[in-house]
Amino acid sequence: MKTYQAKFVTPFSVLGILTEENTLVGIDFLPLNTLPLAPQDEVSTAACEQIAIYLQDAGYCFNLPMSLRNATPHRMKVWESLKNIPSGSVLHYGELAKTLHSSPRAVGQACGANPVPIIIPCHRVLAKNGLGGFMSHSGGDPLQIKKWLLRHEGIQ
C-alpha cells in the first residue's frame, strides 16, 4: 500500500501525490470517491497548487523538483521530449519516435511508464489513427482521463 503525501481532487480523478526527499516521485490516478488528503510536505503542497493552476489555465508550465526512479536513458529522452509538446498540441507516437530515432512502440512504452502524468504530459501523444493508450491502458477510465485532459487543453 502506497503512502501518499496528498490526495488532490480533480474533475477526472483524485490524484495521489507521492514525494520523497523533497522531490515529486509519482502521481497516481485514484477513484473519484477516494477521500482527499491535505498536502503533508512542501513538495506535495507545491504539486497541488500547480495542478490547481493547470486546471484553471491549461497552458501552465509545471516547475516541480522530480526524481524519476524508473528512468532509463530512452525513457528520459522521451519524457524530456514530452515536456516540449505545448499545451493544445499533440504528436503521434511515430512522429516522436522519428525525432528520437526510436520506434513508436518504444515511445508508447516510455509514455506508459511515466511516473508523473500531467506534469510530464504523456496525454499529448496520440496513435496515428486514434487516441492511443494512456497509463499502459487501451480502454476504460484511463482513456476517459486522457480525453478529459485533451479537451481541457482544447483538443478534440
Results as ranks from 00 to 15, higher is better:
131 L>T: 08
148 W>I: 03
11 P>L: 13
116 V>M: 00
30 L>E: 12
31 P>R: 02
29 F>V: 00
101 H>Q: 15
131 L>S: 11
106 A>N: 13
141 D>S: 10
82 L>V: 06
148 W>R: 08
17 I>M: 03
7 K>M: 12
54 Y>P: 05
23 T>N: 15
29 F>N: 12
28 D>T: 07
101 H>D: 14
111 C>V: 03
142 P>G: 05
41 D>F: 01
66 M>I: 02
52 A>M: 02
84 N>C: 05
69 R>V: 09
29 F>A: 13
34 T>Y: 07
51 I>F: 05
49 E>P: 06
82 L>T: 03
12 F>R: 03
25 V>H: 07
75 R>A: 05
135 M>Y: 13
83 K>F: 01
23 T>W: 12
39 P>E: 00
45 T>G: 06
9 V>Q: 15
88 G>C: 08
74 H>G: 00
65 P>V: 02
64 L>T: 07
62 F>W: 08
14 V>R: 00
48 C>P: 05
66 M>Y: 12
85 I>W: 11
28 D>N: 10
99 T>S: 12
2 K>P: 03
34 T>K: 02
100 L>C: 08
51 I>C: 09
112 G>K: 06
85 I>N: 03
48 C>G: 03
55 L>M: 09
17 I>V: 13
72 T>W: 14
115 P>I: 01
8 F>C: 11
4 Y>S: 06
83 K>R: 14
153 E>K: 02
81 S>E: 15
58 A>D: 12
49 E>K: 15
72 T>E: 12
8 F>S: 00
87 S>Y: 00
70 N>M: 00
110 A>Y: 13
52 A>K: 11
8 F>G: 09
128 K>V: 04
12 F>D: 00
103 S>V: 03
90 V>K: 08
2 K>H: 12
68 L>A: 04
139 G>P: 08
66 M>A: 04
77 K>C: 14
123 H>R: 05
118 I>C: 07
116 V>G: 00
37 L>Y: 01
28 D>F: 10
116 V>P: 02
153 E>Y: 00
1 M>V: 10
116 V>I: 06
18 L>Q: 14
155 I>S: 00
80 E>W: 09
90 V>Y: 00
75 R>W: 02
83 K>D: 03
97 A>C: 13
19 T>L: 07
23 T>I: 06
1 M>T: 10
136 S>K: 10
56 Q>P: 00
